[in-house]
Design a protein around this nucleic acid. Structure first.
Lengths: 190, 190
DNA sequence: TGTACATCAGTGAACGCGCGTTCACTGATGTAC
DNA sequence: TGTACATCAGTGAACGCGCGTTCACTGATGTAC
């Protein structure tokens, strides 16, 4: 049955929120639209009133997943090295490692996104470029800021991915990966 | 019908080779056993004579995917900085970026492996530890070699993943990611 | 403000399809004599 | 070396299941009068 416009908008947001969490946790191919809609309190049929296809849905869910992290990094003032170190510490924390469904969409979905062509890949690429720009703005100015931003993002994402992959089978290795990268980025141990 | 033992062993290898390529390219959830068996010139039923389940099959395919890279890095003599730089150059080349199905299984499958518990996750973890050890052995000895090995692997894997994710939508960004990480690792541009 | 009705968000059955796995069967291999 | 036959690697139909997507239908919303 029809619902109010406010309710419909709220339902759309619930669909995106559920998808952004479940896709990060299980990958784009690891969870079906029916299960996501159920998690959002709706039925799968309703999805196609809001989104053109699973691919477009996944792309919007991916964009939604970027909001939180970009906001967090955006709050760091340019030149505030302590605040930036705090961001690194959070990114490379066990808490972030263990909370895939609420964490960085690059670490969770970049490999998946690289396999798709279409809206998902474009959204991921825009997200990566956004992070590179945010780091560039926040680093002390020198001739290689953008390069440094790229290597920093590579270390963060790479370190988190490796730490997650080894967490279940080798807790010590997983932990060492986090602290090694954190130290290399010049931040003290948490 | 029955085949000779030699042929059976050859078929098993063909199944692993096809799986290691197709899983790297499409992910563990992105391709079915029937398609892989077809690629290997067999039917899907034959799989279960060689492997216990898809998960065990995937784990062996993953282990198979590690062989080439580990061999390549193993050929680098300890202390031979030029040879090590050559390895970095290859790892961060456009050729490696564009050849996922023949490339590093960590960059291709670590995120997928982190989502599975069971033999696949264990194989991936062992592969990561192997790479860390190989780098550790090949770096000039100082008190933080293992930490340096971990940050190096994080940068390589992270940089390659980001470069692949952005390749289709932003070729310039994808290229800059490779060269930035390569320079940060102290290797000259190719 | 009250009533009649067009709109349309959401429902759930149905579609064709591919998934992982099983198993009765086939027929070449390779062993026993 | 030649023959009879047990072994077993590989085949392909079949299983139940979940996938993405469509669509006739429902019934509350919100508009026109």
């Amino acid at each position: 049955m029809k619902v109010s416009k406010e309710q419909a908008e709220q339902n759309r947001k619930a669909l995106l929120e559920a998808a952004s969490r479940l896709y990060r946790e299980h990958g784009f191919d690891g969870v079906g639209v029916a299960q996501i809609a159920r998690e959002a309190g709706l039925t799968h049929g309703s999805l196609y009133g809001h989104f053109q296809s699973k691919d477009h849905y996944a792309a919007e869910a991916c964009a939604h997943a970027f909001v939180k992290g970009v906001e967090l990094l955006g709050q760091v003032e340019a030149g505030d090295d302590a605040a930036l170190a705090g961001f690194f510490q959070h990114y490379l924390s066990e808490a972030h490692r263990d909370a895939v469904s609420d964490g960085c969409p690059i670490a969770a979905l970049a490999t998946d996104a690289a396999r798709k062509d279409g809206p998902v890949g474009e959204t991921m690429t825009r997200g990566i470029e956004t992070y590179v720009e945010l780091f560039t703005e926040r680093f002390a100015k020198d001739e290689n800021v953008r390069e440094r931003a790229m290597t920093t993002l590579s270390m963060l994402v790479g370190g988190l991915i490796l730490s997650r992959a080894s967490a279940a089978s080798n807790a010590a290795l997983s932990q060492q990966l986090l602290t090694s990268v954190l130290q290399a980025l010049g931040a003290p141990r948490a």
